[in-house]
Computed example of a mutant assay.
Amino acid sequence: MSKHVIVGAGPVGVETARALVAGGHQVISVTRTGNRPAVSGVVPVAADASDPTRLTEITAGAHALYNCANPSHYGNWEKVWPPLWSSMLRTAEATGAVLVSASSLYAYGPVDAVMTEQLPDKATEKNGRIRAAMWAEAKQLHDQGRIRAVEVRASDYAGAGVGGNGHLTRNVPAALAGRPVWFMGDPDQPHSWTDVLDVGRALATVAEHPGAYGRVWLAPTNPPRSAREATADVLAEAGRPMVAMRRIPDVFVRAAGLVNADFRQFGVMSYIMKRPYVIDSSAITAAFGLAPTPWGEVCRRTAGLSTVAAD
């Protein structure tokens, strides 16, 4: 049994903790409030992870430090991430813990092909550049031998506990109630959806394999489904009919962005939902045997009918 420290107790942090506890490890969850994740056996610690001295104290002796943080606002990443990421890098160097980071596809920027780990990070908008710079810094320190680092990227989240943090999941309560849902973008474009369960499994797995370090991996993800298809699939698993799906007008997003930084960034990143957004995660399957949770089970988890994937 080894010690593992997870920063963040959102859906990815919870699933990472669940995977690690199932593997017999000691797991510490670090949040500002010290709230305990809904996973038996996890030790909650209240701390500001942006404080490298405190985070180093907590992480001392750990095999791995996991970045599962998720800033509550989309529009202020340039304020939140630099001190938090600097603290994690310094802690990884001071303790020798493997830095295992959960990330998104934003660093790639808009692409016209299926996304794989071989794509270069070419994002030009703010949040994508921030994510790309974070990995570039970790990779440089890894290549210099100062830390050990690995990153797992995922597409839009599906599964249990995601709620308003996902383009698909935020519409599920209204859809289950039979109400029309509103979608930001084109609901008929092919799109990849990654279950947070599979992100957690991927993070826990790569942390245990030194051969995985020093590179990016894409979390196990099912073949793409459009937002309309995915919503219909979730409703079908719950025994409910499909509901009307309406597009949020671009003019509304632009107007909201004039007064709200989150909406302003949503508008900048809207390409994600207006064009095909598809990944090929076969590399992690080939390397570690990690296949995505079956799509039907993902839909049941997204509908709130199941919280743990079937074996």
Results as ranks from 00 to 15, higher is better:
F183K: 08
L203E: 02
A160Q: 06
L203D: 03
N222S: 13
T302L: 11
A149T: 01
P71R: 10
R129I: 07
V216E: 10
T31I: 00
V253F: 00
E137P: 04
M245H: 04
T205Q: 12
D233T: 13
S192H: 01
E297L: 02
R148L: 03
M1P: 13
P249Q: 11
A256E: 08
A310I: 07
T16S: 11
R148Y: 00
V196G: 04
G145K: 05
S155E: 13
Q140A: 15
V298S: 10
L197Q: 15
V27E: 04
H209L: 13
K122M: 11
V251P: 00
D233Y: 12
D188S: 10
S101H: 14
A94Q: 12
T302A: 13
H209M: 13
L203G: 04
S281M: 06
S40F: 10
A62R: 01
S101E: 15
S2Y: 02
L55E: 06
R264T: 02
P173S: 12
A309N: 12
P294I: 07
P276S: 09
P187D: 06
W77C: 08
Q189V: 15
G41A: 02
A283S: 12
T59I: 08
S29Y: 03
V268F: 02
T53F: 07
R179W: 04
A291I: 08
V7Y: 07
H167I: 13
P83V: 06
D112A: 14
N35M: 12
A244E: 15
R246T: 09
V12C: 10
A177D: 14
P210I: 02
R153A: 06
V5K: 01
S101C: 14
N165R: 15
A97N: 08
S101P: 04
H209N: 14
A22E: 13
V80C: 09
A236V: 03
G61Q: 06
I28V: 14
A244I: 10
G239V: 07
A303I: 00
A261G: 08
E117V: 09
D280L: 05
T231E: 09
D262Q: 03
